[in-house]
């Protein structure tokens, strides 16, 4: 479960953590991805696992478009840039939820059978549900990929540089909007991947994103802004803490443990575990 939170958080780690743009619609991105996955299954009988790349590609385009149409202008605001970002993306989240209700109806949906759903695999005597296992593997791969991407490619460096000083990168010929649009696309594609896998074993409904989004913010902040590895570690910690809390407290209180650990960590280390900002 921890790696799953990691998977949802990895896209946010890129947008929120590395690019320092607040995205309150992250949970709704997840919701859209889950619906995409659902409809590809319902109409074309494509298994979510196969359609995951398709969903990711579609979300890439979606993320880039959202950046170019909305967020670009929100970032240009001369006053209250932080609040403008928060409420622009919050408004977007409400619109997306409304649209989902309008087109998909508020009904709960699920993918009844798939290659992975409901199956378990036995590793050294421990039974693991397959969807979660695949989710965990994809999550590790996604984090490794993002890490290499940020630290080893020119684009990754351009992204970090653009956040640091948009004026200076313009001087060396980097188009800020192109870099950030690509970053948003990538972040959305990653959450698309998460949505495709989660569609297999979660109910899908217009408000599904909200419950995961907050945990994703906490995960990114716990790990520390500006660190891909931090978000990954944050995801694992969040999962472990949740599991432990669920043993000690009633299940309905399991998130309290996560929140308490976040507070504890930032009180001791106000920059998060591995944060650079």
């Amino acid at each position: 479960m921890g790696l799953l939170y990691g998977l949802i958080a990895v896209g946010l780690a890129l947008i929120f953590g590395l690019m320092d743009v607040t995205n309150f619609a992250h949970g709704e991105f997840l919701m859209i991805a889950m619906y995409l996955s659902f409809f590809l299954f319902a109409f074309f009988a494509i298994d979510p696992l196969l359609s995951a790349p398709l969903v990711a590609a579609a979300m890439f385009v979606f993320g880039a478009v959202v950046y170019l149409l909305l967020v670009r202008f929100a970032m240009r605001a001369k006053a209250n840039a932080g609040m403008v970002q928060i409420f622009t993306t919050f408004g977007l989240a409400i619109v997306m939820r409304g649209l989902a209700q309008y087109f998909f109806t508020p009904d709960y949906r699920s993918i009844p059978q798939s290659w992975l759903g409901g199956k378990t695999i036995s590793v050294a005597g421990i039974f693991l549900p397959e969807p979660q296992l695949v989710g965990a593997l994809v999550s590790i791969a996604a984090f490794a990929g993002l890490y290499l991407f940020i630290h080893r490619t020119d684009f990754g460096r351009a992204l970090e540089a653009t956040r640091e000083d948009p004026g200076a990168v313009a001087l060396v010929g980097i188009d800020k909007n192109r870099v950030f649009a690509f970053g948003w696309g990538l972040g959305a594609a990653l959450v698309g991947l998460a949505g495709a896998i989660m569609a297999v074993f979660f109910y899908i409904y217009p408000d599904v994103g909200a419950s995961f989004a907050l945990i994703a913010y906490v995960t990114v902040a716990l790990g520390g802004f500006g660190s891909v590895f931090g978000a990954f570690a944050g995801g694992i910690i969040v999962g472990l803490v949740e599991a432990v809390t669920a043993l000690v407290l009633p299940p309905s209180l399991k998130s309290v443990g996560i929140y308490a650990v976040y507070l504890l960590v930032v009180f001791i280390r106000p920059r998060g575990l591995f944060g650079s900002m």
Binding site: L70, A79, F87, T88, G91, A93, R97, L99, Q101, Y102
Partner: peptide, 24 residues
């Protein structure tokens, strides 16, 4: 209608005002 049209309008207005008038 219970189909979320009010949410769409409401959200869109929030986006529009935030973007158009960052100082409020």
């Amino acid at each position: 209608s219970g189909r979320g049209v009010d949410l769409i309008v409401y959200g869109a207005l929030i986006v529009a005002i935030s973007l158009a008038l960052p100082r409020g």
